[in-house]
């Protein structure tokens, strides 16, 4: 199905968002107290930042939060299911995150359904904005995970200066737009031409070329020895920054918190880079050596993710490149991997 295409003048944006906010919590990119831009619940629509850098925090937090209460247990032996069914609309989502969510859908909803993710996902509408100016760390274009998406989005906006080119790609997006159709008009030829120009310039902006497939093939060929992973892992602080910033890292732990008479079972983001992650009963640590954990993270993204979900566990968002203090992020490691293993081959 070809997405419905429309035009929204920026003058009408705040009105539209205000209408949406009457039914849903509105999440948008806001400037924090320092200079960082963060996704937060929007109180004043005019605080929303429109001149956005390409790399923003991931919106994973709203679908799979860092701290998610699952159940509440009361001393009366009653259990309350704490699934969050808040209706949300998130404005300003990046295309790479939209692509990541289509993979997370497969992960969380195929086989056993994860009801906490499912409920949030069903109730969330994503309004994504195409990046006109990718950052030096980005590499989505070569992976076809952005900046322009053909499908997978609810509503995709392209900034044309005074107006947005609007594409509606899902029933949820359709409802968010069509109920306020009086705010939108059909695109003219000039709009298509302007959109095409933005499309071209976003492609022309030199993005890094990182081939995940090339890296996968190198690993599968057996040319990447454990010495390589030892060298990489020697630099790892185990800070977990890459894992927490990654829109496709989903490992979690579950713990019970006791508040007087109430017990809350919560799940928290966990990281395979931590030594205790695979600890067995009796304290056995199968991945005690750090390089095994580093290797596992890269293998998960480059080998196991494609095997299981038919897509790499990386969308080229570049966040780990920014997060990693020692430059052992996905892009840097792949670049090094080619030098190291490629020279032997």
């Amino acid at each position: 199905m070809k997405p419905t295409e429309l035009i929204l003048y920026k003058d009408h944006l705040s009105y539209w968002l205000r209408q949406l906010r009457k039914e849903r919590e509105l999440i948008g990119p806001l400037r924090g107290e320092e200079t960082d831009i963060v996704f937060k619940s929007v109180e004043n629509i005019h605080d929303i930042v429109l001149d956005l850098p390409a790399i923003l925090p991931t919106v994973k937090e709203f679908l799979f939060p860092q701290y998610e209460p699952m159940f509440k247990y009361l001393m009366t032996d009653e259990v309350v299911d704490l699934r969050d069914n808040t209706k949300r609309v998130i404005f300003g989502v990046r295309s790479c995150d939209v692509t990541a969510l289509t993979l997370l859908d497969k992960f969380f909803l195929d086989g056993y359904k994860d009801p906490f993710y499912e409920e949030r996902r069903n109730e969330t509408v994503l309004i994504s904005i195409v990046c006109g100016r990718p950052e030096p760390e980005c590499f989505c274009a070569g992976l076809n995970t952005g900046p322009y998406l053909e499908k997978g989005f609810d509503v995709q906006l392209t900034d044309l200066g005074d107006r947005f080119f609007v594409q509606v790609g899902s029933p949820k997006g359709h409802s968010a737009v069509m109920r306020f159709s009086f705010l939108f008009r059909k695109p003219y030829k000039a709009d298509y031409e302007d959109q095409y120009e933005v499309f071209l310039s976003s492609k022309a902006t030199s993005q890094k070329r990182i081939s995940l497939e090339g890296a996968r093939q190198l690993i599968l060929s057996g040319k990447v020895k454990d010495d390589f992973w030892r060298m990489i892992s020697d630099k790892c602080f185990e800070c977990g920054g890459c894992v927490y910033q990654c829109p496709l890292c989903t490992c979690f732990t579950v713990t019970d918190r006791v508040f007087g008479d109430i017990i809350e079972r919560v799940r928290l983001w966990d990281a395979c880079l931590f030594k205790g992650f695979t600890r067995l009963a009796g304290g056995i640590l199968p991945n005690e050596e750090r390089y095994l954990r580093t290797k596992r993270w890269f293998y998960h993204k480059l080998i196991y993710y494609p095997d299981a979900l038919n897509g790499f566990g990386c969308v080229g968002c570049g966040r780990c490149t920014i997060a990693c203090p020692t430059k052992i992020d996905m892009a840097s490691v792949i670049t090094r991997l080619k030098v190291t293993a490629g020279s032997e081959g």
Binding site: G111, T253, D270, Y304
Partner: peptide, 24 residues
């Protein structure tokens, strides 16, 4: 095979080995 597990249904990520989950 034995593994650390938090969910039992292939989601928490603790028990995967290769593309296999010990739990499922």
């Amino acid at each position: 095979l034995e593994a650390h597990m938090k969910c039992g249904i292939g989601k928490c990520g603790h028990c995967y080995e290769g593309s296999k989950y010990i739990c499922i």
